[in-house]
């Protein structure tokens, strides 16, 4: 099993390398352009990915400008992602994948998932320290009403302004980016017995020779027990044998629907647990690509 895990992780890294390669190449070529022309050409980065089509062209342009303007001032990149895709992965994962893909180190990202009505914020790098989950929560509370009322441009504007404002506020920062604690301060990192237990998958138990030996002894016992029990002959007749089918049957039946209950649980994730807490009680997580981030999510 361990070898299998290793192979899988190796494959994963390979795939990751191939997906990230174009990004590196793009960046490199952009830089080359800069030096060759001699003039300072600002590298164009798209900040608003409005896949859900929530913004007008004017709003889009003004928000892009805002992102560049505030971004220079705050020293981080602002990103706004929207989509209305029913098949998209969960919000937290969606942003993590975005970051893993683009490799923007210092950034704060807002995702509006129109399909699930989810709003998710994550801070990376510098923004993780300044825009920790507590501050992201505050921002989220402020914009949720605007989102609910479909005033998206306004909501995104507030997101950029507030985030930039927090970046200047040096009080009450979160330098602890290890989110292996739950809200009660219990360590849930990789050394915990729980995680170790998770390492032993059911298949490991099945391949355990002692388990197999015990199981085979039980099988042997049951089979021989049944043989002994049946050695004196067994009962071969039952209700069906003597039932008078022509004069038997149901004379009354009802199947009335009463109610429906629905419960839901989160799909178990393998690598990171979104919504982990650090010692200070701040939420955060880690993308598959190894980017640690703060996070806040809610509905609108």
């Amino acid at each position: 099993m361990k070898i299998m895990n290793k192979v899988i992780s190796l494959l994963f890294i390979l795939v990751l390398c191939f997906t990230l390669l174009p990004v590196f190449i793009n960046k490199a070529s952009a830089k080359a352009e800069e030096t060759s022309s001699g003039a300072v050409v600002t590298e164009y980065i798209q900040h608003i990915y409005d896949e859900a089509g929530l913004l007008s062209t004017e709003d889009l342009a003004s928000l892009e400008d805002m992102c560049i303007e505030y971004g220079e001032e705050a020293g981080i990149d602002f990103f706004v992602l929207t989509h209305n895709n029913s098949n998209a992965v969960d919000g937290d994962k969606y942003i993590e994948n975005f970051v893993d893909r683009t490799d923007y180190d210092n950034s704060v990202i807002l995702l509006v998932d129109m399909y699930h009505r989810d709003v998710v914020l994550q801070g990376y790098g510098l923004a993780e320290t300044y825009l920790h989950s507590g501050r992201l929560d505050d921002i989220r509370y402020e914009i949720t009403d605007y989102l609910t009322n479909a005033n998206y441009a306004k909501a995104f504007k507030i997101f950029i302004e507030d985030s930039a404002a927090y970046m200047k506020d040096d009080s009450d920062l979160n330098y602890d980016h290890d989110y292996s604690y739950d809200q009660n301060g219990n360590y849930t990192g990789s050394y915990s017995p729980e995680t170790q237990y998770n390492d032993t998958t059911p298949e490991d138990v099945l391949t355990n020779p002692i388990f197999q030996l015990v199981t085979s002894l039980i099988i042997g016992g049951i089979v021989v027990g049944v043989m002994v029990y049946n050695s004196g002959g067994k009962m071969t007749t039952g209700g069906q044998t003597y039932l008078d089918r022509n004069h038997s049957g149901l004379i009354g039946r009802r199947d009335n629907y009463i109610r429906t209950t629905v419960t839901r649980v989160r799909k178990p994730t393998q690598n990171n647990k979104p919504g982990g807490f650090n010692a200070g009680g701040f939420r955060g997580g880690m993308s598959i690509g190894g980017h640690s981030h703060s996070s806040s999510r809610g509905k609108f």
């Binding site: 149901l250 199947d255 009463i258 429906t260 419960t263």
Partner: peptide, 23 residues
Amino acid sequence: GDWIYTETKYYDVYRKVDLNYLK
């Protein structure tokens, strides 16, 4: 999405049988 939903429908079931067994 990221959720596993379990939907449980409840029914009130009633049965009445008249059975004859021979010999």
